[in-house]
């Protein structure tokens, strides 16, 4: 007797968000990136459809970043030139998006002006044809000024800008509304705050399809299970028609995985751990691939060797779905 597979059917799906704008749409991008849209648990292709494959955004900072040499060496001499760096990420490493992090704005560091920051973003826009994600230096007051300037200088480009957080979402949501960008809504590994923040931003008048959830994550070995369970609840919420949790998710994989000691210590310091060059790549790769399985739509990554592995993984997962 043939066995009928029990299939789960969900009443709703993850919302779609479009990033970037071509010339016809008022921007200057070669093409746009659409994320979300799935009506299934990740890659359970017999139950639904993978509408848009997950994408990789590569991190670019406005000043030379404090990363380990194993990563930096792969970029050669571009790390002091964000435009050239971004171009290399797209042309050589196949990045779908560039995630510009304006750490040079940090008042405790270089304290760059909002205008200087906006100029960096414009330079990167000129250098690449992919859509951009732009975040500040994680100092709320300064970021509000910086992101207002960036949003204005790039009006029409339909960027994804951040970070809107529960205690500081109004200026950035307003900047996105006025200049027609999308917003990253970040919550501290907390599904209830995640939902509430989406509600608050939406109440200001930003449509739900202009919001991307950053649930915050833990890297491999540092709470990734917790991030996984939060993301799973959000995904199930979206599929059960909870509109306030239906946005696609962005995960800062490169940042979180490379904070781990395991991604930075040399083999000399820990002979049992093996070569850092391999270990760091795997640490970031495994963080990324685990989160793909729970519905990450945008992976923000750092290490080009890890990007390559995850690109393969995504291709395999989507190919099976399309077969």
């Amino acid at each position: 007797m043939p066995v009928t597979l029990v299939k789960e059917r969900f009443p709703s799906k993850v919302g779609e968000v479009t990033l970037g704008a071509t010339a016809e749409q008022g921007g200057t991008r070669d093409s746009v990136v659409v994320v979300g849209g799935d009506n299934l648990l990740p890659f359970l292709h017999f139950e639904g459809k993978v509408v848009h494959r997950p994408v990789i955004a590569m991190e670019v900072t406005d000043i030379v970043p404090p990363w380990n040499e194993a990563i930096k060496a792969q970029f050669g001499d571009v790390l002091d030139n964000p435009a050239a760096w971004a171009k290399k990420c797209v042309d050589e490493f196949g990045a779908d998006l560039i995630y510009v992090k304006l750490i040079g704005a940090d008042p405790e560091g270089f304290n760059r002006s909002p205008e200087d920051c906006a100029r960096v973003v414009k330079d990167v826009l000129a250098a690449v044809g992919v859509p951009l994600i732009v975040v500040g230096c994680e100092t709320p007051e300064k970021d509000n000024e910086v992101m207002a300037a960036v949003a204005e200088a790039t009006a029409g480009e339909n960027l994804l800008i951040g970070l809107a957080e529960q205690d500081n979402y109004k200026s950035i949501a307003a900047a996105a509304m006025v200049h027609k960008h999308n917003v990253i809504a970040r919550s501290p590994l907390d599904i209830n705050i995640c939902k509430q923040l989406n509600i608050l931003i939406n109440e200001m008048g930003l449509p739900l399809n202009k919001i991307v959830i950053d649930p915050m994550i833990g890297g491999l070995g540092f709470g990734i299970e917790y991030a996984y369970s939060i993301m799973e609840r959000a995904r199930l919420g979206a599929l059960a028609n909870d509109k306030m949790l239906s946005m696609p998710m962005i995960c800062t994989v490169g940042y979180e995985s490379n904070r781990a000691k395991e991604a930075n210590e040399s083999v000399e310091a820990f002979p049992d751990w093996g070569e850092l060059a391999d270990r760091g790549v795997l640490w970031e790769t495994l963080t990324a691939t685990a989160l793909l399985q729970v519905g990450a739509s945008i992976l923000v990554m750092r290490n080009p060797a890890a990007v390559k592995l995850v690109q393969h993984n995504i291709a395999d997962l989507v190919e099976v779905a399309e077969a």
Partner: peptide, 14 residues
Amino acid sequence: KSIYADSYLKVFRT
């Protein structure tokens, strides 16, 4: 049955 958020009363009516 639905995920808590501080504004849940309002969201229920949306």
